[in-house]
């Protein structure tokens, strides 16, 4: 079991870390949440019954962990963007990523989870399974989140 757990950890930990980053916007806390997620995965691996994909199951644990990180979320960065942001000439990849995290941090908790899963390239049906919504509701939510992000990015001078 340990060998298979190691393989699972190596394969899925970057994905879980990115989803946690989308929620918490703090690398140290995202690492803690990733660790907590895999503690839960390890504890429950024997009860995993292949009823869903392993990635769906792991991300479901991760998203539940994120949503339950109540104390940590109080410290989360949710500051509004400055009103008059100068247009960047050539943003580095890190700056672009930081801006993306900042935009996601301004969404509601559950919206943060949904967009993180979408950016992980998960199909909408799988996202619906993870968060426990119907596919129709998930589609509507995703559409609204995309609109919100589009406005933020347009205001920032991107995606004209």
């Amino acid at each position: 079991m340990q060998q298979s757990f190691e393989e699972i950890y190596t394969q899925y930990s970057p994905q879980v870390f990115r989803v946690c980053m989308g929620y918490i916007n703090d690398p140290a806390q995202a690492r803690d949440l990733t660790q907590e997620t895999f503690i839960a995965v390890w504890q429950n691996l024997s009860s995993f019954r292949n009823e869903s994909k392993l990635s769906t199951w792991i991300l479901r644990i991760a998203t539940n962990n994120c949503l339950r990180a109540l104390e940590k979320s109080k410290r989360m960065v949710t500051t509004d963007l400055p009103f008059d942001i100068p247009l960047p000439h050539e943003e580095t990849q890190e700056e672009k990523l930081a801006f993306l995290y900042k935009c996601i941090a301004e969404l509601e908790e559950t919206e943060r989870i949904i967009i993180s899963l979408l950016l992980e390239d998960l199909p909408q049906a799988e996202i619906a399974t993870i968060i426990g919504l119907t596919e129709g509701n998930t589609r509507v939510k995703i559409h609204r989140i995309k609109e919100k992000l589009a406005v933020k990015f347009r205001d920032h001078g991107q995606f004209e």
Partner: peptide
């Protein structure tokens, strides 16, 4: 959003090398 793929590229560029190893 038409630029979801661009966002995905940015999203996937996150540095995950700082994650603890399996041991």
């Amino acid at each position: 959003m038409d630029n979801l793929n661009d966002l995905k590229k940015i999203w996937l560029s996150a540095d995950t090398s700082g994650l603890p190893d399996t041991a």
